[in-house]
């Protein structure tokens, strides 16, 4: 999910704590800040800290002046060979190619296990919105190939696309049968997206709160942090990549439920909007003597169901007879792209 969805989910979870509402009514915003910050914290840790310290074995760095798909294919094959020969985990960085303040040379890397080869093609130039620049689609028609020493097993069916900002990292993990398991963004959700890490963080900051304000504040801080950090992990399990849920007790990422792509517009919006409605409802419950009275159902009808139906109806009307194609995000790298595009 997008960062803002995680953030608002965290704020919503925090609002379920009556202490958060009471503190807010006294002018203390700490629980809501903690909720939002912890909601987005796992991705912050990964994308703004950890990835810059993640060592790679092979850096594939195409030349912007002379993009050579064969170079990319050869380097990719060399990384595969390294993993096979040395029987170890090999980390490969596919570096992006920047051509302008708003322009990036896109290239794709596709693995064909039947032919046991990798195919690389440089595609169009795209802008930061990942929209292709007209007239650049056929700049580099050549598809370069290189033989692979082993099969590379992907859990999704997509080409690796490299375009805006930072290029992706992939990891080759040797399997018992000699094949390599391809892990996309191995540094992402390696340990940060874990319920236990959230609990540990809650304990640490709870200890600080205990020292500063006493036991009550301490457990309230712990519960807020653990719950809001945890909701991020839960939400990410709805996607494809999954998370290493109980690190350090578990070693690998548990694949997600594949219910959504992290960049899908509707689930993201619903997550944000429903979080807002929950927050509103919890705040309303905390009003000492409300002038207006309404039920949760009433709130949901007025705030979500009726406007949603109207919007859906209008959309149906406006797209009648049209074949509206929503751009489908790639399973593997859409979260990576969504995070970058949001910056």
């Amino acid at each position: 999910m997008k960062g803002f969805s995680h953030f608002m989910s965290g704020v919503a979870v925090a609002s379920f704590g009556p202490w958060a509402i009471e503190a807010a009514q006294q002018g203390n915003p700490i629980f809501f800040i903690l909720g939002g910050a912890c909601g987005i914290l796992p991705d912050t840790i990964d994308f703004k800290f950890y990835r810059f310290f993640y060592e790679h074995d092979v850096y594939i760095t195409p030349d912007p002046l002379n993009p050579d798909p064969q170079y990319v294919a050869n380097e990719f094959a060399r990384a595969v060979a390294l993993a096979v020969d040395e029987k170890r985990y090999v980390r490969v960085k596919l570096v992006s190619v920047r051509l302008g303040a708003d322009f990036w040379q896109q290239y794709s890397v596709k693995i064909d296990n039947e032919k046991l080869e990798v195919q690389v093609k440089f595609g169009p130039v795209v802008n930061t919105g990942q929209v292709p620049v007209k007239g650049t689609e056929d700049r580099y028609p050549t598809v370069a190939t290189a033989k692979l020493k082993a099969k590379v097993i992907q859990t999704y069916d997509a080409a690796l696309k490299v375009d805006i900002f930072d290029g992706p990292t992939i990891g080759f993990k040797p399997m018992d049968n000699g094949d390599l398991d391809l892990e996309f963004l191995p540094w992402h959700r390696e340990w940060s997206h874990s319920l236990t890490v959230g609990a540990i963080l809650g304990v640490l900051l709870g200890a600080v709160a205990w020292w500063a304000s006493g036991w009550t504040m301490a457990w309230q801080v712990f519960v807020t942090i653990a719950a809001c950090y945890g909701v991020h992990v839960v939400e990410d399990q709805l996607g494809h990549m999954g998370s290493n849920i109980f690190y350090p007790l578990t070693k690998n990422r548990t694949p997600g439920l594949h219910w959504m792509h992290s960049g899908d517009g509707l689930p993201n919006f619903l997550a944000v909007w429903i979080s807002c409605l929950f927050i509103f409802w919890n705040l309303y419950r905390g009003v000492p003597k409300p002038t207006y009275h309404f039920s949760f159902i009433h709130l949901m009808m007025v705030g979500l169901v009726i406007p949603g139906l109207i919007f859906w109806g209008l959309r149906k009307l406006l797209t009648l007879g049209q074949n509206v194609q929503m751009k489908k995000g790639d399973d593997a790298d859409d979260e990576w792209n969504e995070s970058k595009a949001a910056g």
Binding site: G3, F4, F7, V11, A24, Q25, G27, P29, F32, I33, G36, A37, I40, T44, F47, K48, F52, V95, S96, R98, F165, D166, G167, F280, L283, Y284, V287, P290, T291, Y292, S339, K340, A342, G343
Partner: peptide, 28 residues
């Protein structure tokens, strides 16, 4: 009526998100 005493933390979470969501431009 529901939100009026809570504007302060709304501003704080906006600040928090603004600062936390900025994407590093370098380090590629």
């Amino acid at each position: 009526e529901v939100l009026k005493g809570h504007m302060h933390w709304v501003l704080w979470i906006i600040i928090t998100f603004m600062l936390m969501s900025e994407w590093p431009k370098g380090g590629n």
